[in-house]
Design a protein around this nucleic acid. Sequence first.
DNA 1: TTGTGTCTGGACCAATCGGTCTAATTCTGT
DNA 2: ACAGAATTAGACCGATTGGTCCAGACACAA
Lengths: 198, 198
Amino acid sequence: MTDRPLSTKDRLIRVAAELFRTRGYHGVGLSELLSAAKAPKGSLYHHFPAGKSDLAVAAADWASDGMLRIIAESFEPAEDFRAGATTLCYKLAKLFDLSGKWDGCPISATLFEGPENEQFLRHARHLFEGWIGEVAHHGERFGYSGEDARTQSEHLFMLFQGGWQLARARHDSDVIRHLPRHLALTPPSTVDGASAQV
Amino acid sequence: MTDRPLSTKDRLIRVAAELFRTRGYHGVGLSELLSAAKAPKGSLYHHFPAGKSDLAVAAADWASDGMLRIIAESFEPAEDFRAGATTLCYKLAKLFDLSGKWDGCPISATLFEGPENEQFLRHARHLFEGWIGEVAHHGERFGYSGEDARTQSEHLFMLFQGGWQLARARHDSDVIRHLPRHLALTPPSTVDGASAQV
DNA sequence: TTGTGTCTGGACCAATCGGTCTAATTCTGT
DNA sequence: ACAGAATTAGACCGATTGGTCCAGACACAA
């Protein structure tokens, strides 16, 4: 919320994250990016020696960190896994609305079309696994076995990615909000249960 | 399979579909596209007066038709909805493997970043709803109520879109193959049942 | 054969692309 | 105040972008 004194580097990252998210890596030119960030070309190549691709990775990392934060904020105070997932979906739906019901997944849009993309793809995978791992961690915290937690987490991930695209095509975030309906309701089938600690 | 005598227009559409699918609308230049299709620039603008964007729409339509065909081929001979969905996922996983475990959804990649994209987005939505409608149709055929069929179909759509992205990041089509595990197993809860006709 | 419309081939265009480079400026610590 | 580093400013570059345009190669009908 306090946005005033933001370093040029941070401004570049934020602007890049937003632009790439809406129009994709190749869809954004440096000139547009720089003018949106009110930064000259020299700054870009000072902070990101490899230029556009460096910046894209940084932007994706920043976006990914934001997502991890939202996941944590959703699951930590939750009563059970389903409640956490529901909160998460609501938060993300709201975010989608705020962005103008227009954006795609920042990771896919930014990294799935990198120059000759093997590195980009690897990095995208790394970030995705981070999200899945974070959700799975909370799944275990709520009593799911490691394997079950991972299954649930991957399911939620795919639902969300798919829902995001459908929401984008429809200009309607309700799909995202209703995602938890599709989650299997099986409660943790553990024998020992010590999970309620907030 | 019989690819020899293919009109310039069709060659353009097929090549465009493939290139856009792997690198996105903005990631493919006309020069590359034309040389891959062995067509001169004049032909492009003869068959697609609006140029790149016209071609993109045609390519997306062609890809969408292919998907509709695969959906039909998967569900028509199936014994029930789940079997159809399973077949569909296997077919698509195989297709993904054949493409080099690299491609994204042809619709998203081609139409989600159109020039100033409202029209493109609307068209993408139209095609997506076509897929969902086709699957839902088979759901009803297998005894689900209209509403349930639609829910199931949307669920499958989102799973597939999300799974596709995960598979792409992982270079591994198993995610797609295992998608049906996440489908709710509730059998059609209809009272009247006349559905076994192949 | 000639005429007519469809299609192809590619030269050409302004605009933009991502990237390099250097001079000026601003920010440090002393 | 000063030196030295960090950062900014933007002119400049060759390559490529999507698009226009027209001459010629075709097809097929009369």
